[in-house]
Simulated assay, not measured.
Amino acid sequence: MVGARIVDRLPDNWRWIVTTRASVVLALLVALLSVATGIVRIDQQAADFGPLAPHVPVAVQDAVGFTGALTGFLMVGSALALRRRLRAGWWATVLLLPLTAIQGLLQASPYSLPLVVLSACALPTLFLTRRQFDRSLSLTTTQIAAGAALVGVQAYGTFGSYALREQFDGIDHLLDAFYFTLITSSTVGYGDIGPATEVAILFTMSVVVLGVASFGIAIGALVGPAIQARISKTLGIMTDSELDLLDDHILVLGYGDLTEPIVDELHEAGRQFLVVTRDPEAASALADRDIRVLTANPSDEDPLQRARIESARAVLVATDDDAQDALAVLTARELRPDVRIATAATDRENSRKLERAGADDVISLSELGGHLLVRSALGEDESPVVSRLLEDEQPSNAN
């Protein structure tokens, strides 16, 4: 709450800096620096580092070099989640930023100083933009089960091989058991750790079978839907199951400069609506804003039927092309004679044509603009609003 108030009070020329995009960019920079410094630390010797090196054990420096690179890759994932404005991505970044800063300090390297500074600078920005990351991460039952299966198989292999460590060559610690399980279930199999008895061989075979199955299921359930959703958003394609959920919605046929304010108002009001446009770039931009969009010709019958015009509450048509709008209105009226259709005419002479096409309400932009300008010049546009506000305040003042 306090961070959001600070952002609201920032001047206009500074407010754009503390934005969602700034948080995403800072998280990505921290991720790249974490990976880079981790690789540099692995490649260098402790003697090559600065004055902090003698105070940090070499084993710790080596460990944070490897884990720093791993943390950097995790930061890339959290930055992508931030880009989607996911709340889970915000929490993951908040937890990872102090870790990258600590790893930078423990690397005891002058190369890691920018990592520490940038991690410290990214945290305040992240807290200031906290309210911007309000989208929840929704996982299906299949995705949860696939993730649980993957974790369960790794736990089964780790604790099982550790319990049978006397029957394996090379397993002395729990870390050895986890290493063996990971390379075995992923079918890498370096051969440095192997079973020495028949029981250990049978156990290793079970880890291979279960590991391959769990990896395959996890990739299909966790990664597959994300790729499919991204492709669908890019192409503006909605699945039939998503379209079937539409009910009592508003259809916005076509997209242009006149349509943008309509979409913004419907989106801010939380209305259920669907935009049908033939412009793939516009469809991709709308999909990135989590707005339902269908890439198709709004004057064709099939897209409107797929958009469930039979259950639509109303139809809005307002683009820069009156001729295309008339075709869209005509098609919508033929498919749904009882639906209310509202449209706008960029040319005053086209108002009657749109009415004859089947529109219930046609707003002439030239007439509306002239009317509003006259009322504004005479000061008449304010009087109804002011009087209404005064009427609303009278009872409270009387009390």
Rank of each mutant, 00 (worst) to 15 (best):
V293S: 04
S311F: 09
T142G: 13
V153W: 10
L389C: 10
D264K: 08
E281P: 00
L354Y: 01
A229W: 01
V40Y: 13
A269K: 12
V212W: 14
V64H: 08
H249K: 01
V151Y: 00
F178M: 10
A81K: 12
A163L: 08
W91S: 15
T197Y: 11
D279N: 15
F273W: 04
D43C: 07
I237D: 06
I363T: 06
E367H: 11
G224T: 07
L33F: 07
G216M: 13
D247G: 05
G369N: 11
E391Q: 14
A145H: 05
L258H: 08
V117N: 01
R84A: 15
A36D: 02
G191L: 05
A4I: 07
V263R: 03
V151T: 09
P261E: 09
A79Q: 01
L96F: 07
G50E: 09
M238R: 15
I171P: 00
S109Y: 08
I237C: 01
E355Y: 05
L354G: 02
L327I: 03
A122S: 14
R5H: 13
T19Q: 10
S119H: 03
L390S: 11
L128P: 01
A59G: 11
I227N: 10
R348E: 14
L105A: 13
V362K: 06
G270F: 09
M205F: 14
L32Q: 04
G216W: 01
A196F: 03
Y179E: 10
A46G: 05
L251H: 04
L26V: 06
T129K: 09
A122K: 07
S138D: 10
L164R: 03
T259N: 06
T259D: 02
P395D: 12
A155N: 06
P124A: 15
L182Y: 09
L10K: 01
V275W: 04
R336M: 05
L106M: 12
M1S: 14
I17M: 09
T158N: 06
D240F: 03
T319I: 06
Q167E: 15
D347R: 14
A218E: 00
L372N: 08
E382M: 14
D392L: 15
R289Q: 13
L86S: 13
I291L: 13
A31N: 00
G50L: 08
A269H: 07
D48V: 00
T140C: 10
T331K: 02
T158C: 11
G379D: 04
V188G: 05
H173R: 14
L335E: 03
S396W: 14
D381T: 13
R278H: 12
L74T: 02
G104Q: 05
S311C: 01
V207Q: 07
L137Q: 06
E391F: 04
V276Y: 07
D12H: 09
K233I: 04
A81N: 11
I193G: 03
R135L: 12
P395V: 02
W14Q: 15
A4M: 12
H55C: 02
A218M: 02
P110Y: 14
L294R: 00
T67I: 13
V386E: 13
L29Q: 00
